[in-house]
């Protein structure tokens, strides 16, 4: 992987975080720390607040209590466009591209904060990483398949060479092989090159395979957390998320 695609990571921390809509907390008292070179995954049942947690970290959902920090800088309730300037790339679960814009225009918007003369070179770098996108530069993003679309969504955030990647269910609606490639080759690869990766993932087994640390969210709170190898021995976790007997 080209090292320039992402930067050396920064620590992303949520401390006693409560966040939600219209003053009503969906996640409550959550502590999460994502560190450079590591993948931290968040798993949990539907409605447990995983997406809300990520959205509150990047400024899309208001933080009602607690703090969010990048390194030592408090970024609680920063506007999303400000969070982007601090090197945080966010890929939402759905609506992750601009459908009426072409692939090239999506990448250009991804590089909106770059100096104009750097955009073309940066697109080239992203296309080296996702060569399939090269053939579809003039195609509208709304016409792409699920896998191509996700590549574009990732490419869009890579335009700014983020130091922190916040990814909300990047494998949703992808074929198993494409999902595995995305997780193991690309997402794990970012962390291996020093970036900070915070990942929400429905496929618990796949998430555990690439994670250094996993938090389990339930009812808006962290109910369990640990290294994947420890969670794989936890009977409750195995029963709830891995659908089988714990490994001993």
């Amino acid at each position: 992987m080209s090292v320039e695609l992402s930067q050396a990571g920064q620590v992303l921390t949520a401390t006693n975080l409560s966040a939600g809509y219209d003053g009503r907390a969906i996640v409550q008292g959550v502590n999460v720390e994502a560190t450079p070179g590591k993948v931290v995954s968040i798993v949990g049942p539907n409605g447990s607040g995983k997406s809300t947690l990520l959205k509150s970290l990047v400024g899309v959902v208001p933080v009602l209590a607690g703090t969010v920090a990048i390194g030592s800088r408090d970024i609680t309730n920063f506007a999303p466009e400000k969070v982007a300037t601090l090197g945080v790339g966010y890929v939402p679960q759905i609506d992750d591209v601009f459908p009426p814009l072409t692939v090239k225009e999506n990448l250009e918007i991804g590089g909106f904060l770059l100096p104009r003369h750097d955009v073309a070179g940066r697109i080239e770098a992203v296309l080296e990483f996702f060569p399939r996108l090269k053939e579809m530069l003039t195609r509208k993003a709304g016409k792409l398949s699920g896998g191509e679309r996700k590549m574009l969504a990732m490419g869009r955030v890579l335009m700014l060479a983020p130091s922190v990647l916040v990814l909300d269910e990047p494998t949703a609606n992808l074929a198993p092989m494409v999902a595995t490639q995305l997780l193991e080759e690309y997402i794990r690869g970012f962390a291996d090159h020093g970036s900070t990766v915070l990942l929400v993932e429905q496929r618990a087994k796949a998430a555990l395979r690439i994670s250094d640390w996993t938090c389990v969210l339930g009812g808006g709170r962290v109910v369990l957390e640990g290294a994947p190898k420890d969670l794989e021995r936890d009977p409750v976790f195995v029963e709830s998320f891995l659908g089988g007997a714990a490994r001993h």
Binding site: E81, P92, V97, F98, P100, L101, I109, G110
Partner: peptide
């Protein structure tokens, strides 16, 4: 133009445009 593309991006998905650094 950059402005025109930002206008179309804001029209398509304002939140995503903001996450990309566009001051919507």
């Amino acid at each position: 133009t950059r402005l025109g593309k930002a206008m179309r991006a804001t029209s398509a998905n304002a939140n995503l445009a903001r996450n990309s650094g566009v001051k919507t």
